[in-house]
């Protein structure tokens, strides 16, 4: 128990220190790297809280892909923040204290940490999710069951949010430049280093394989479409960084990306419409296999995870390519 508390406290202290350091930092590259550290610590905290799926997502998204994207953005802008007027420090401090005070005040009446009689534990749906799901859906990872089936609509919504973000980047930054429009490796000359080139070449298949593993293993352990999509994207980003955008685009052409971006939501919604046509409710996977509802659920969840994976990967890759080709085009 003692170690548990100590670990928690230590991590929290690191977290706060990192946050303060970021807020005082003017150099944006450094701030970005510290941001990655912040995410990593958060992910560790999630692990301690037994929320492994969340930790996995935080690690993949917060530490991995968003750091890369931020760096891509920084390549386009100045890397030092304009100095904030000093007189703004005090109001900002008051604001932080107010919001934090409000939260702290509210937390006084929250159930104790890990209390067994908290409303969340005693509510019947917790029981439904933990026990009934084995009968209804029959997959060991209840997080995936809740995510993809019980609250499938929320997941569809989140996928649409990712899709919308992709659209936003496409409309603001423009689509990735065609390979012939880019200047050959103006900034990206990592491929000159043989070690990097060879190692990343070797690593590529493993990254993709791991992504597939995470995707299909989501039913049994931590993982699923979101994490897998991010890992896919990380692979392409690495490839693009090392070998140049033009080569990366030869692997995943712009048209394919555009189709993949919209394919995920389409498959997901199409699945919902299909269940309707088969006589069930929207996203009722039971009807996919009328004789064995659990099989239907399996199939549905698999399709959903795959759709998520493809779209997340495509959106992330598009975002990176768009930013990166802003740097090298013209």
């Amino acid at each position: 128990m003692m170690t548990f508390v100590l670990t928690n406290v230590t991590l929290l202290v690191i977290l706060i220190a990192t946050a303060i350091a970021i807020s005082r930092m003017r150099a944006l590259y450094e701030a970005t790297m510290l941001g990655a550290l912040f995410s990593l610590v958060t992910a560790s905290l999630f692990v301690l809280l037994d929320a492994v799926d969340v930790a996995f997502t935080e690690a993949a998204v917060g530490v991995g892909i968003s750091t890369v994207l931020l760096l891509g953005v920084l390549a386009l802008t100045r890397s030092r923040e304009a100095v904030t007027p000093r007189r703004r420090h005090l109001p900002a401090l008051i604001a932080v204290l107010l919001a934090g005070g409000a939260l702290g005040y509210a937390s006084q009446d929250l159930p104790a940490f890990g209390a067994a009689d908290s409303p969340v534990f005693s509510h019947p749906i917790t029981g439904t999710y933990l026990h009934q799901s084995q009968e209804d859906i029959g997959i060991p990872n209840t997080v995936t069951a809740v995510l993809a089936s019980y609250r499938g609509l929320d997941t569809l919504g989140e996928l649409v949010v990712v899709f919308t973000a992709g659209l936003a980047v496409l409309s603001l930054v423009g689509p990735p430049a065609r390979p012939e429009e880019t200047m050959p490796r103006a900034d990206f000359h990592l491929a000159d280093y043989r070690i990097i080139r060879i190692i990343s070449g070797i690593l590529m298949p493993f990254i993709l394989l791991f992504a597939l593993y995470v995707l299909f293993h989501g039913e049994y352990g931590p993982g699923g479409g979101f994490q897998a999509g991010v890992i896919f994207a990380a692979g392409f980003v690495l490839y693009g960084l090392v070998f140049g955008l033009d080569k990366a685009q030869r692997v995943v052409p712009r048209v394919a990306l555009r189709i993949l971006v919209s394919l995920g939501p389409l498959v997901f919604i199409g699945l919902g419409l299909a269940t309707m046509l088969l006589g069930g409710q929207f996203l009722d996977f039971d009807v996919l296999d009328p004789n064995h509802p659990e099989e239907g659920q399996h199939l549905g969840i698999l399709l959903v995870e795959t759709a998520i994976g493809f779209t997340v990967a495509a959106v992330m890759t598009t975002v990176f390519f768009s930013f990166a080709s802003r740097g090298v085009s013209r």
Binding site: P91, A95, L98, A99, G101, A102, Y105
Partner: peptide
């Protein structure tokens, strides 16, 4: 700043 002020005032 306005949001947070409103939040604080409301609390």
């Amino acid at each position: 700043w306005c949001i947070v002020l409103l939040l604080g005032a409301l609390i």
